Deep mutational scan, measured.
Amino acid sequence: MTYKLILNGKTLKGETTTEAVDAATAEKIFKQYANDNGVDGEWTYDDATKTFTVTE
Rank of each mutant, 00 (worst) to 15 (best):
10 K>G: 10
28 K>R: 13
17 T>Y: 15
38 G>M: 07
40 D>N: 14
45 Y>H: 02
22 D>N: 08
14 G>D: 09
34 A>L: 08
1 M>Q: 14
9 G>A: 09
15 E>N: 07
11 T>A: 12
5 L>A: 03
54 V>D: 01
7 L>P: 01
50 K>A: 06
38 G>V: 04
3 Y>W: 07
46 D>K: 04
41 G>N: 02
12 L>Y: 13
25 T>D: 11
4 K>T: 14
11 T>F: 14
14 G>L: 14
39 V>I: 15
7 L>F: 11
50 K>M: 11
37 N>W: 15
27 E>T: 05
46 D>W: 04
40 D>E: 13
26 A>N: 00
38 G>W: 05
31 K>H: 08
6 I>Q: 05
17 T>V: 10
51 T>S: 05
32 Q>L: 10
51 T>K: 03
19 E>I: 11
33 Y>F: 13
17 T>A: 08
32 Q>Y: 06
12 L>T: 10
45 Y>S: 01
22 D>S: 07
27 E>V: 06
56 E>R: 04
33 Y>N: 02
46 D>H: 07
38 G>P: 01
50 K>G: 05
44 T>H: 11
34 A>R: 01
9 G>I: 09
55 T>E: 06
12 L>M: 13
21 V>F: 13
15 E>M: 13
46 D>V: 06
49 T>S: 10
27 E>K: 12
12 L>E: 06
35 N>T: 13
25 T>R: 06
7 L>R: 02
54 V>H: 02
40 D>V: 15
9 G>D: 03
30 F>W: 02
7 L>E: 01
18 T>I: 14
33 Y>D: 02
8 N>L: 11
1 M>G: 12
25 T>A: 14
15 E>W: 14
5 L>V: 04
48 A>Q: 10
24 A>Q: 12
18 T>G: 04
2 T>H: 09
34 A>F: 03
17 T>N: 07
48 A>L: 14
55 T>D: 07
36 D>I: 11
40 D>A: 12
19 E>S: 10
16 T>Q: 10
9 G>N: 04
55 T>L: 06
11 T>V: 09
30 F>I: 01
26 A>G: 02
8 N>W: 15
3 Y>Q: 01
55 T>W: 10
10 K>P: 09
43 W>S: 01
11 T>N: 12
47 D>Y: 10
21 V>W: 11
37 N>V: 15
27 E>P: 00
9 G>W: 06
30 F>P: 00
29 I>D: 04
35 N>I: 15
10 K>H: 09
23 A>E: 07
9 G>M: 12
52 F>H: 02
42 E>H: 15
14 G>Y: 15
35 N>W: 15
29 I>W: 13
52 F>E: 00
25 T>I: 08
27 E>I: 09
19 E>D: 10
55 T>F: 07
37 N>M: 14
54 V>T: 03
